[in-house]
C-alpha cells in the first residue's frame, strides 16, 4: 500500500506547478489551464485525506469542487472570448487599458 503522504506530496507538487504556470505564462488560456491544474491538485488532496480518515466527506467535497471548476471554466472562457472580441489577443501583456 502506498502511504497517504505520497499522495499529499504529489498534490502539493501539482499545485506548485499550477501556481508557477499562472505566474509565468502570458497566454490567458494557458493561465486558466494552470488554475484548473491547481484545483485538480486540491481534489487529489481532499480524496487522499478523506481516505486516510476513512470518511467519505472528502469525496463529497470534491464533487462540489468539480461543479465549481466547471462553472468557472464556462464563465471564464466566456469572459476570455468577450475580451478577445474587443482586443483580438489573449496575451495578458496586451491588456493594458487599465494599468495592470
Amino acid at each position: 500500500m502506498t502511504p497517504i503522504n505520497y499522495y499529499l506530496g504529489l498534490g502539493a507538487l501539482l499545485f506548485a506547478i499550477g501556481t508557477v504556470g499562472v505566474l509565468i505564462r502570458r497566454n490567458l488560456i494557458v493561465v486558466f489551464m494552470s488554475i484548473e491544474l491547481m484545483l485538480n491538485a486540491v481534489n487529489l488532496t481532499f480524496i487522499a485525506l478523506g481516505r486516510a480518515m476513512g470518511s467519505a466527506d472528502g469525496q463529497v467535497i470534491v464533487f462540489f469542487v468539480m461543479i465549481v471548476a466547471g462553472v468557472e471554466a464556462a464563465v471564464g472562457l466566456g469572459i476570455i472570448l468577450a475580451a478577445f472580441r474587443n482586443r483580438l489577443t489573449v496575451n495578458a501583456d496586451e491588456f493594458n487599458l487599465l494599468r495592470w
Binding site: 500500500m1 502511504p3 497517504i4 503522504n5 499545485f15 509565468i24 486516510a52 480518515m53
Partner: peptide, 25 residues
C-alpha cells in the same frame, strides 16, 4: 516571484513528507 513561490511550495511539500507516516485505514 514565480521562483520564490515555487520554492515556498516545495518547502511545504517537504513539510508534508517529513510528517509522521499516515496510513490508509
Amino acid at each position: 516571484l514565480a521562483a520564490v513561490g515555487a520554492a515556498a511550495l516545495v518547502g511545504e511539500l517537504t513539510a508534508f513528507l517529513t510528517r509522521t507516516h499516515m496510513s490508509q485505514q
